[in-house]
C-alpha cells in the first residue's frame, strides 16, 4: 500500500502542493492530467529521485520519505524506455539483480518467466539501440520487474509507441499486473487506456490533485469544472439553482432533485444527450427543440452541436443515426436528457 500524505515539493517556480493519495496493495492506479501538471515529478518523488520538502510517503506501512531510491524497492519505467545503450538486452534485464540478494535458481526462474511472458527470447544478445519502441518498452518492463519491486511506476509507457504496438502492450501490462503482486502506478493521458487498465485514478493539474476516486466516478461525477472539461464533459455550463431546477441563461432545466454540492456548474456528457425528430415524452424530463449549428466528424461517431436559444449543447451520435434522423446543419431537432445524466458541482 502506498500512502502519500500532504506531500509538497518546490522546484523553482513550479511545485506540488499538498498531495494526498492512498493506493491499495496490488492496485492498478492511474494518474491523469494535462502536460505540466506535475505527474512525472510526483512519480520521481515516490521513487526518491526528487526530494520532498514536506509531508510523508509510506509504502506497506514504512515511512520511506527519507530513503535513497535504491532502498525503496520501487521500479520506474519511462516513456523513452531509458535502456542502458551499452548493455545487451540480457544485461539490461538482469541489471538490478547485481544489487539484490536473489538465489541463482530464483533469479533464473524470474528471468525465464519475464522473457517468456514479454516475448523477448530472440532479442537477448542484441543491443537496445536498433530495436523497435515496443520491444524496448517490453525490455524496460522486464528490467523493472525482475527485482520484484513493491511498486512499479510507469510514466506514460505507451504514448511513444505506434498504435498497433500500444494495444498489444496494454494487454501485456494488464496480464503482468494480474500475474504479479506488484502495485502499479501509471501516468497516462489516454482515457481508453485508463478505463481499460485501472479501477481508480487521480486527476492532477498545476501541481495539485483535483480528484481521486474510481475511474467511473471521475468520468461521471467530476467534482470541478477542470476535471469535467479534462475528462470530456463537453456540456459544461454555469447555472443558477432554484429548488430542483437549474437555469442556464434563460433555459430552465429540471434536475428532479435538489442540486448536490452545487457551486454553480452543471455538466452533461455528450453521449447522454439524445437526439430525436419528435419530442420524446417518456422519462426524459428535459426535452428541448434546437437548431443544429455544427456537425463534426470524429471518426467513429459525430459530434453534433445544437443551439437551444443561446445555449449550445453537444451530442455524440453514430453515423447511422445521423442518416436516420436526417441531421443537417440548420435543421430543427429535439434533444433530451435524463435528469440522472446531469451533474452539478
Amino acid at each position: 500500500m502506498i500512502s502519500i500524505d500532504n506531500v509538497s515539493i518546490q522546484l523553482g517556480k513550479f511545485g506540488l502542493r499538498d498531495i494526498n493519495i492512498t493506493i491499495e496493495k496490488n492496485e492498478f492506479f492511474i494518474l491523469m492530467g494535462p502536460t505540466g501538471a506535475g505527474k512525472t515529478v510526483l512519480l520521481e518523488a515516490i521513487a526518491g529521485l526528487i526530494r520532498v520538502d514536506s509531508g510523508h510517503i509510506h509504502v506497506n506501512g514504512r515511512n520511506i520519505t527519507k530513503f535513497p531510491p535504491e532502498k525503496r524497492g520501487i521500479s520506474i519505467v519511462y516513456q523513452d524506455y531509458s535502456l542502458f545503450p551499452h548493455l545487451t538486452v540480457r544485461d539490461n534485464i538482469t541489471y538490478g539483480l547485481h544489487f539484490h540478494k536473489v538465489a541463482g535458481n530464483e533469479a533464473k526462474k524470474r528471468f525465464d518467466r519475464l522473457v517468456e511472458e514479454l516475448n523477448l527470447s530472440h532479442l537477448l544478445q542484441r543491443l537496445p539501440t536498433n530495436l523497435s519502441g515496443g520491444e524496448n518498452q517490453r525490455i524496460a518492463l522486464a528490467r523493472a520487474l525482475i527485482v520484484s519491486p513493491k511498486v512499479l511506476l510507469l510514466d506514460e509507457p505507451l504514448s511513444a509507441l505506434d498504435p498497433g504496438f500500444r494495444e498489444g502492450l496494454r494487454k501485456r501490462l494488464k496480464s503482468l499486473h494480474e500475474s504479479t503482486n506488484v502495485t502499479f502506478l501509471m501516468v497516462t493521458h489516454d482515457f481508453s487506456e485508463a478505463l481499460s487498465l485501472a479501477d481508480r485514478a487521480a486527476v492532477m493539474d498545476g501541481g495539485e490533485i483535483k480528484q481521486v476516486g474510481k475511474m467511473k466516478e471521475i468520468f461521471q461525477r467530476p467534482n470541478s469544472a477542470f476535471v469535467a472539461d479534462f475528462v470530456g464533459m463537453k456540456n459544461l455550463f454555469t447555472a443558477r439553482f432554484c429548488d430542483t431546477k437549474a437555469v442556464i441563461e434563460d433555459l430552465e432545466i429540471e434536475l428532479g432533485r435538489p442540486p448536490e454540492n452545487g457551486h454553480g456548474h452543471i455538466a452533461i456528457r455528450p453521449e447522454d444527450v439524445v437526439i430525436s425528430r419528435e419530442k420524446l415524452s417518456s422519462s426524459m424530463r428535459n426535452s428541448f427543440m434546437g437548431r443544429v449549428a455544427e456537425i463534426m466528424d470524429q471518426g467513429l461517431c459525430y459530434e453534433v452541436s445544437i443551439a437551444v436559444k443561446d445555449v449550445l449543447f453537444k451530442s455524440l451520435i453514430t453515423k447511422s443515426s445521423l442518416f436516420d434522423l436526417e441531421v443537417r446543419e440548420g435543421s430543427d431537432i429535439y434533444l433530451s436528457f435524463k435528469s440522472m445524466a446531469m451533474h452539478t458541482f
Binding site: E70, R72, I76, Y78, S82, H100, R143, A144
Partner: peptide, 27 residues
C-alpha cells in the same frame, strides 16, 4: 547522458557510486 538512465539504475537498487561505475562512466 540522460539522467533518467541514472534514475533507473538507482531505482533498481544501485547506489550512486555503482551507478556511476556501471552506467555513467562507460557511457
Amino acid at each position: 547522458i540522460s539522467p533518467r538512465l541514472e534514475n533507473v539504475s538507482r531505482s533498481l537498487g544501485a547506489s550512486m557510486f555503482s551507478t556511476f561505475c556501471r552506467v555513467t562512466f562507460p557511457l
